[in-house]
Deep mutational scan, measured.
Amino acid sequence: AEKTGIVNVSSSLNAREGASTSSKVIGSLSGNTKVTIVGEEGAFYKIEYKGSHGYVAKEYIKDIKDE
């Protein structure tokens, strides 16, 4: 099942092309942005936001229960 997560940073969080800190940054998400978690790979979540996919470090995403 898809989960919703909240970007848990004070400034912004980089979204990357792949599940690695050396992957190209494809965008950034500001704190408290809601994202859909579609998968996980190592220390990263694969997320969907406004129709695009990217990878973000798990430690900066807070899971919330689907309402």
Rank of each mutant, 00 (worst) to 15 (best):
residue 1 A to D: 09
residue 1 A to M: 13
residue 2 E to M: 15
residue 2 E to R: 15
residue 3 K to E: 02
residue 3 K to P: 04
residue 3 K to R: 14
residue 4 T to E: 06
residue 4 T to H: 09
residue 4 T to I: 12
residue 5 G to W: 05
residue 5 G to V: 03
residue 5 G to R: 01
residue 5 G to S: 03
residue 5 G to M: 04
residue 8 N to V: 12
residue 8 N to S: 11
residue 8 N to H: 10
residue 9 V to W: 05
residue 9 V to A: 10
residue 9 V to N: 07
residue 9 V to H: 10
residue 10 S to K: 12
residue 10 S to W: 08
residue 10 S to V: 12
residue 11 S to V: 10
residue 12 S to L: 10
residue 12 S to C: 15
residue 12 S to W: 13
residue 12 S to I: 12
residue 12 S to D: 08
residue 13 L to G: 04
residue 14 N to E: 15
residue 14 N to C: 15
residue 14 N to Q: 14
residue 14 N to K: 11
residue 15 A to F: 15
residue 15 A to G: 04
residue 15 A to Q: 05
residue 15 A to N: 03
residue 16 R to H: 15
residue 16 R to N: 09
residue 16 R to E: 04
residue 18 G to E: 14
residue 19 A to E: 03
residue 19 A to R: 02
residue 19 A to G: 04
residue 19 A to N: 04
residue 20 S to E: 07
residue 20 S to M: 06
residue 21 T to L: 14
residue 22 S to W: 07
residue 22 S to K: 11
residue 22 S to H: 11
residue 22 S to L: 10
residue 22 S to A: 11
residue 23 S to K: 02
residue 23 S to I: 04
residue 25 V to G: 04
residue 25 V to E: 04
residue 25 V to T: 07
residue 25 V to N: 04
residue 26 I to A: 02
residue 26 I to P: 00
residue 26 I to K: 03
residue 26 I to D: 02
residue 27 G to C: 09
residue 27 G to D: 04
residue 28 S to A: 11
residue 28 S to N: 09
residue 28 S to L: 12
residue 29 L to Y: 02
residue 30 S to N: 10
residue 30 S to C: 13
residue 31 G to Y: 12
residue 31 G to H: 14
residue 31 G to Q: 11
residue 31 G to I: 08
residue 32 N to M: 10
residue 32 N to A: 08
residue 32 N to K: 07
residue 32 N to L: 08
residue 33 T to R: 05
residue 34 K to A: 07
residue 34 K to D: 02
residue 34 K to Q: 10
residue 35 V to T: 00
residue 36 T to S: 08
residue 36 T to C: 11
residue 36 T to L: 09
residue 36 T to V: 14
residue 36 T to A: 08
residue 36 T to W: 13
residue 36 T to K: 12
residue 36 T to Q: 09
residue 37 I to L: 03
residue 37 I to P: 01
residue 38 V to W: 05
residue 39 G to I: 02
residue 40 E to A: 05
residue 41 E to N: 06
residue 42 G to F: 02
residue 42 G to S: 05
residue 42 G to L: 03
residue 42 G to T: 00
residue 43 A to E: 13
residue 43 A to L: 12
residue 43 A to D: 14
residue 44 F to G: 00
residue 44 F to N: 01
residue 45 Y to D: 01
residue 45 Y to E: 02
residue 45 Y to Q: 01
residue 46 K to M: 09
residue 46 K to G: 00
residue 47 I to M: 01
residue 47 I to Y: 02
residue 48 E to F: 11
residue 48 E to I: 15
residue 48 E to R: 13
residue 49 Y to V: 04
residue 49 Y to K: 00
residue 49 Y to D: 01
residue 49 Y to R: 00
residue 50 K to C: 12
residue 50 K to N: 13
residue 51 G to W: 04
residue 52 S to I: 14
residue 52 S to E: 08
residue 52 S to G: 15
residue 53 H to Q: 06
residue 55 Y to S: 00
residue 56 V to T: 00
residue 56 V to S: 00
residue 56 V to W: 00
residue 57 A to W: 08
residue 58 K to G: 03
residue 59 E to T: 07
residue 59 E to D: 07
residue 59 E to P: 03
residue 60 Y to G: 09
residue 60 Y to S: 08
residue 61 I to D: 00
residue 61 I to Y: 02
residue 62 K to S: 14
residue 62 K to N: 10
residue 63 D to F: 14
residue 63 D to H: 09
residue 63 D to L: 15
residue 64 I to S: 06
residue 65 K to H: 12
residue 65 K to A: 11
residue 65 K to N: 10
residue 65 K to M: 11
residue 66 D to N: 12
residue 67 E to W: 12
residue 67 E to A: 13
residue 67 E to P: 12
